[in-house]
Write a protein that binds this DNA or RNA. Structure first.
Length: 788
DNA sequence: GCCCTGCATGGTC
DNA sequence: AGACCATGCAGGG
């Protein structure tokens, strides 16, 4: 056992020290601070730093015990300590906000601040800074001098210490007031780890400070915890604790592989995990909600004059959670217990809301509660090679066995996986997404010509509008109906009206008499009932008339991203202009999307009815799927609209999930669509089995997608999805442009020409291939209602 | 020959 | 250009 003050202690002695020390840290810190300091500064240091199993996460309780009654401000050693702290302040990170500010915001945690002369000092982590080759302390302090450091510090958000009422409203990262990267703010709001050695210099490892000030404030967005999982919230509620999302990590192939090493983001590891100075690191004890206790070895490798942090021995845990590459593990912390909560999200069809719902139904959770504390060496020694130990520690909670639906992502698709993760947060058809999109105000599209086709381009992101219903009055006037978000009454509006996503009667500037929720609805219940089916029937008729089905399923992946991004764009923390572009994606050489592999219309060999090429078989299979789903949808839509038309409540926009059974795209996220369900008897592995005779109709298909997307997430597929996304955006904007011109049926516009041309790529097998998704423009004039 | 460990490499941001 | 990190791979058991 390497000792911070230097030298080594034999393993047996170290264990003995630990075993003989029955006092929890909170109790040990019941000794006066002076005593503790003496302990720390003298020969007992090894017990603090060298014995290993120090529950560093119990820092709050340690501090409480110190601050409540045991501080002896007059102790000389303590004064010296504070002076040293003052010296090193210039080198180390300062607490992000002042004591005064903290108290103002969090009166309930005033005991976290203990004035000590001019500074507040808090001992944490049991002085477990292994980094220090000489006597050193991990000291968390709040200093009045810190007030100078009042610059905006995103990490200063005191999320974990919000009041219970505030916490109750937390359903996601944003509700947690986590303007990313807020999670780290927890670290600063409560504690600041200072390394203090006898020279007063900050500890340097691998040639540089262990944690530089900027590093903590620049956690990459990919590691921002997207939300506090519902199950974690449940844990929080159950334990009367505050859940503090720390960071998340999308599992790479290596992470999820058999090697059992989970690479930790450096900044996250250094910010939230115990400091380690030796590559061997520390064993961390972890408990999960099912009662299992896990121990991982938290360690690092020197790497390029830096460090690479890993958790070793994670394979059993990963397997237990049935996690695979592309899934996400989230690290949160329960306060004040200091327990680490390790939740997870599946990357595939099981969206967060899905899991939330399921968790709510069953009361079960898919989380791991981790006590980030040094594992007992004695128990650690009993751990098997993998570093795994399982004990029933929390009482058994059965967990839901959710079969993973997604495939393992390619090893090179790390960043794409992250985007895929974003994709699954919203299930919506592209038609529905189109119905919600609005062009940015006061934006005139520019016309570009791509491969002979003209496209309108918008530089800025579209915005989400409210789903409405378009009808024609008896006088032939085009009107639209919008439902108030508050009173659910339907109001008649001009067809040209573009509504925000959250629209209420008070926003009804077109009809002042009905600009209040108290005013009766213009429509009778019967009329309304007729209105809704009529909307559907209009669409149905159009579709029948043209016999052109649009493949919702395939474009969904991209468009749900669009919608998702647009929704996220409403979040102040995510500027929309940088999230979404309506630029038409130029297909690049080497692109393998279905458009690029398909010869342009009129060129190349024609496909025969019996053609079983990838394109044709995919087209056929999707049409079958779509047809079935559309039939189902149409029969349910009227009722569904009435029941579920309410827009999502504020603050939950990022977790919108459309019920699968109400959408024609419910299989889109299923990595293994049932071929039998499609009625074609084929399989995804061999789509060529599909016989052309099983395709009884012509249709219009968005080919600007990646057919493999359904079966396997891949970089190419993602690319295809994004193409569909962007194409869909553009199409809708163009459509809206027509709408705004006041003549949706105009045939003289450029857009119309584009649509006519692009939708007429016909295969000889009878399938009309709508290039670049520029089809069904007319249908899109009627935004579809989104069921939320 | 397999597995584990630790380091190196190279892609990405 | 530098940092980060996913992953390859050499060497040892």
């Amino acid at each position: 056992m390497l000792l911070d003050p230097g030298g080594v202690e034999c393993n047996g002695c170290a264990k003995e020290h630990h075993m003989s020390s029955t006092r929890p840290w909170s109790q040990s810190f019941s000794a006066t601070l002076s005593e503790r300091l003496r302990d720390i500064s003298t020969n007992n240091w090894n017990q603090l730093a060298g014995s290993g199993p120090v529950p560093w996460k119990q820092a709050p309780s340690l501090y409480n015990s110190v601050s409540s009654s045991n501080l002896q401000p007059g102790v000389a050693s303590l004064v010296e300590l504070t002076h040293k702290l003052g010296k090193i302040y210039g080198n180390e990170r300062l607490p992000a906000f002042s004591l005064g500010k903290k108290n103002e915001n969090f009166p309930g945690i005033s005991n976290w601040n203990t004035k000590l002369a001019s500074q507040e000092i808090m001992l944490v982590n049991g002085a477990m800074n292994e980094d220090q080759p000489s006597s050193c302390l991990n000291i968390c302090q709040q200093s009045s001098s810190v007030k100078e450091d009042s610059s905006p510090q995103p990490f200063a958000l005191p999320v974990p210490y919000a009041s219970p009422n505030e916490r109750n409203g937390q359903t996601g990262g944003n509700q947690l007031q986590q303007t990313p990267p807020a999670p780290l703010g927890k670290q600063y709001s409560g504690t600041v780890h200072l390394s203090l050695d006898t020279s007063g210099e900050t500890q340097v490892r691998n040639g540089r400070p262990r944690v530089d000030a900027r590093g903590r404030s620049q956690l990459l967005p990919r590691y921002w915890p997207r939300c506090t999982d519902q199950e974690l919230q449940q844990i929080s509620i159950d334990s009367n604790s505050v859940i503090t999302p720390l960071f998340q990590k999308t599992l790479s192939a290596s992470d999820a592989g058999r090697i059992g090493r989970l690479v930790l983001p450096k900044k996250c590891a250094e910010a939230y995990f115990p400091p380690i100075s030796q590559p061997e690191g520390l064993p961390l004890k972890i408990l999960d909600a099912k009662g299992k206790e896990w121990i991982f070895q938290f360690r690092f490798w020197p790497n390029n004059n830096s460090r690479m942090y890993v958790l070793e021995g994670v394979t059993p845990c990963i397997q237990s959670m049935q996690l695979q590459a592309g899934d996400t593990v989230t690290f949160s912390r329960l306060e004040p217990e200091g327990k680490l909560v390790m939740g997870f999200r599946k990357a595939s069809t099981a969206t967060q809301s899905d899991q939330d719902n399921e968790a709510n139904k069953t009361g079960n959770v898919h989380s791991t509660i981790g006590e980030v504390e040094m594992a007992d060496p004695s128990s650690w020694s009993k751990v098997d090679k993998s570093g795994y130990i399982a004990k029933e520690a929390l009482g058994s909670k059965s967990s839901i066995s959710r079969k993973r639906k997604s495939s393992i992502l390619g090893s090179k698709s790390k960043r794409l996986k992250i985007e895929n993760e974003d994709l699954i947060e919203l299930k919506i058809t592209w038609q529905e997404a189109q119905g919600l999109l609005r062009p940015p105000p006061d934006h005139v599209p520019s016309i570009v010509v791509i491969e002979g086709f003209e496209f309108e381009e918008y530089e800025d992101a579209p915005v989400l509008g409210k789903p409405t219903i378009f009808t024609t009055s008896n006088e032939g006037e085009k009107i639209q109906w919008a439902q108030c978000e508050n009173c659910q009454k339907w109001r008649k509006l001009p067809a040209s009206a573009i509504l925000p996503s959250k629209w209420t009667c008070s926003d009804n500037s077109w009809d002042p008499e009905r600009s209040s929720c108290s005013v009766a609805q213009e429509l009778t219940a019967e009329e309304l009932e007729n209105l809704l089916p009529s909307c559907n029937s209009v669409i149905s008729k159009k579709m029948k008339a043209t016999k052109q089905e649009t493949d919702n399923v395939d474009a969904m992946e991209g468009l749900d991203t669009l919608a998702n991004l647009a929704i996220l764009g409403e979040d102040e923390s995510l500027p929309t202009s940088t999230q979404v572009t309506t630029k038409h994606p130029r297909h690049r050489p080497g692109c393998s999307c279905i458009v690029c592999i398909q010869p342009p219309s009129g060129k190349g060999p024609k496909h025969k009815q019996t053609c079983t090429c990838t394109v044709c078989s995919t087209v056929k299979r999707r049409f079958l799927t779509l047809q079935q789903k559309r039939e189902k949808k149409q029969t349910e839509k009227a009722e569904t609209i009435r029941k579920k038309q309410q827009p999502p409540p504020p603050g939950q926009s990022s977790e919108i999930v459309i019920e699968d059974d109400s959408l024609p795209c419910s299989n889109a996220g299923d990595s293994s669509p049932n071929p039998n369900k499609d009625g074609n008897g084929g399989s995804d592995d061999d789509p060529n089995r599909i016989k052309s005779s099983t395709l009884p109709f012509k249709g219009q298909i968005d080919l600007n997608i990646q057919p493999e997307r359904e079966e396997e997430l891949s970089p190419q597929s993602d690319s295809g999805g994004m193409k569909a996304l962007l194409d869909g955006t553009e199409r809708h904007l163009r459509q809206l442009s027509i709408l705004n011109s006041g003549d949706a049926d105009s045939s003289g516009s450029q857009s119309k020409g584009v649509g006519d041309e692009t939708r007429e790529q016909k295969l000889s097998n009878g399938v009309v291939l709508g290039n670049n998704s520029h089809n069904s423009d007319r249908e899109l004039v009627q935004p579809l209602t989104m069921n939320v």
